[in-house]
Design a protein around this nucleic acid. Sequence first.
DNA 1: AGCAGACTTAACAATTACTTAAACACCACA
DNA 2: TGTGGTGTTTAAGTAATTGTTAAGTCTGCT
Lengths: 220, 220
Amino acid sequence: MIVDDEPDILEFLRYNLRKEGYDVVSANDGRAALIVAEREKPSLIVLDIMMPELDGVETCRLLRRNKTFENTPIAFLTARDEDFSQITALDVGGDDYITKPIKPRVLISRINALLRRSNRQNDEEQETIQAHDLIIDRLKVLVFRGETAIELPKKEFEILWLLASKPGRVFTREEIFDKIWGSDVIVGNRTIDVHIRKLRERLGEHYIKTLKGIGYKLEF
Amino acid sequence: MIVDDEPDILEFLRYNLRKEGYDVVSANDGRAALIVAEREKPSLIVLDIMMPELDGVETCRLLRRNKTFENTPIAFLTARDEDFSQITALDVGGDDYITKPIKPRVLISRINALLRRSNRQNDEEQETIQAHDLIIDRLKVLVFRGETAIELPKKEFEILWLLASKPGRVFTREEIFDKIWGSDVIVGNRTIDVHIRKLRERLGEHYIKTLKGIGYKLEF
DNA sequence: AGCAGACTTAACAATTACTTAAACACCACA
DNA sequence: TGTGGTGTTTAAGTAATTGTTAAGTCTGCT
């Protein structure tokens, strides 16, 4: 999530991050940021310091109070000559700060580094994947949507887990066969459709999207 | 390329692979294998472990020294009771091993899997292309223009990807046919126009430019 | 043995993407 | 101003892929 009150900068950030394959959501002030963050659960937040009303530092402080964003990496944007020191950023729980003017390469490598770091922390063999309103728990072999837990049989769970491992990206049937069944097992062509169908039956229709001739993906 | 000193097995392999549409060349010992490989540049090699003189493992080691075969998938053939462990195969740079007796189906699906994997490796280099205000994401099979994501059907996406791989350069119709359809498929002349039309419909008129009598290019 | 759930297969339906055909527009050139 | 070559557009036909349902097989459990 990127937060800045200047549309130009927002566009610049969005463009460069998208180019790297990131999903980007934006907010144009601190208050909006809190709302958007709650809804989108971003895995990283870029906050401009200088914003009217609720500034970046204050926004950060509020975000950190929310348990959801306790460990979300937050990077500040700051003009070189702004009255702001690195210390303040770290004080309120920021993880990095990027000075304007922003160079795309620097932006990207910082963002990558932050995500790497946080992934390493959170990973430890990754036990759950969160995608939109689904939480998929590999150890319990359960899917939670809000309060309700959904049980899935093994194969269906494996497929969902695979799709959710990279939400949005398309997995071809071949890929799915390879990863779920392995290359020795030969199963009919329709098998996968049936599993997809059962998944949709249990989760709802709108999660798994078919791209004809290409494959399936998770979408919301 | 298949390599084995027993003519029966060679024949068995050749028969089954041909049936799947593969071009097969063979060698009946390790030394011949090196020569044939050099001449034929196979895209996959099946090596029997047990061969007189130069055995499979040793042949593999020699092949791997040659830069041409650095990334060529190599599968070993081994009798279940041969004194040979999977580790050895991996040590010398093998990618898979198939135990005798060989079941045709298993053989085929393993071979297919290996080729898929090696294709994917070479492919997966570039995941997104950006051209002007378009970001084309191959994994998500989506095109982004600023905020909005545009979905495309397979063929249209492939054509756009091709044009965008070298923005500004002109692709002749022939080139496009070759790369998208391949040389064995024959489709009518007007097919491509229709796809271009649909692309323009979805993206806007000004992206794809026609050069009469020459071809199409991406332009802004 | 009998049952239940998971997984697979098979037959057919539905859907979508792709291709073709045909009428039209444009442009260079005689 | 007509003509041939080339590209565009539409609509309709065709092929390919996926969806759906029901029934069959397999496995583990009581």
